[in-house]
Design a binder for these strands. Sequence first.
DNA 1: GCTTCCATGTAATAGGTTACATGATTTG
DNA 2: CAAATCATGTAACCTATTACATGGAAGC
Lengths: 186, 186
Amino acid sequence: MDVRTACLGLLTFGEATGYEIKKAFEDGAFRSFIDASFGSIYPALNKLTEDGHVTCKAMVQDGRPDKKIYSITDAGKSFFKDALQETPQEDKFRSEFLFWMTFSDLMSASRVSGLIDNQIAQYQTKVEELRQLSKTGLQDGEKFVVGFGETIFTATIEYLKTHRHLVEDQFTTEHPLHGGAMAAAE
Amino acid sequence: MDVRTACLGLLTFGEATGYEIKKAFEDGAFRSFIDASFGSIYPALNKLTEDGHVTCKAMVQDGRPDKKIYSITDAGKSFFKDALQETPQEDKFRSEFLFWMTFSDLMSASRVSGLIDNQIAQYQTKVEELRQLSKTGLQDGEKFVVGFGETIFTATIEYLKTHRHLVEDQFTTEHPLHGGAMAAAE
DNA sequence: GCTTCCATGTAATAGGTTACATGATTTG
DNA sequence: CAAATCATGTAACCTATTACATGGAAGC
């Protein structure tokens, strides 16, 4: 899905400015599962206007640039509904961290532990943010998405805590005490 | 992380051709968390050779193009170890499906159910593939990564099964039987 | 006084995907 | 007999990110 379609979708919830759309991507229910920068949102909005999928009314403002409020048109709504009938692109989970973990033997033990600590902290922050969000009045679809995030991020934290030894204990394969096969290593 | 660094990392495991690197990205432990196409791998390998991070020996072959076997150099190894000291880019989970779910009220009930069924099926396939992988002899780092995938994808399936009603029951907000507030809707 | 919020936009750049070209051999 | 596997590579294209430009107001 390109930014253009994502913006169009957001506008089915009501009119908004480019700035507000960006904020919705950052703070909305799908915050963890989508992203777009101004550099892609503003051009997308222009293209949507060209295509007649949205209309734009400029609100003159004091010191700032005119606020441009976009509204979806019937044509836009219809176009978006059609888009919803297409097969969605497969989920993508990209993790440099996990790739790094494959090379834990090339890093110091403290480096590996540090990376995992950071990862856990990051996911804890995400979960807390989602918990806050879920306290606000959400529609069912939003509850579904936020709950999804809470669930899998919590599972992620649990996994990291319970399996970190797999990449942290590489230098002490055998138990340091009473290790039967230690003779060879010494 | 760019494709160049990812290729370099793979080559720390041993020499390989571009073709094999692609396969490793597709079938290896991190299969679900990284991807790269030939169009990016081959140029990356050329650049790495230019930079002295890898060396290349061509194996003449019968009908096919010469097989080019790449090996990492000491300089390359050192470069990669340094790369491992940098802060990894944050995990990214992109899901068009979840974004779509926010608009479940713009879709038919059967469309929503179909999307969820597909999603469950996709994750089940992934989990099965990872289970197969985990039966082969894996290093600790690989076990960690594969286990990660198994765990969170399983959690995903569970969540979808137990919470799908949130987006499937939108047309029957009240319980159809003995719904106290049904009078207004009829 | 510094940072964040508001508000839009453009241009350079980077990075990657897709499709194409080539072609034998093996598997179904 | 068709499809997948092996094997490399290029070029066109697309898309998005980053950094920049502008600048007042409000909060810390």
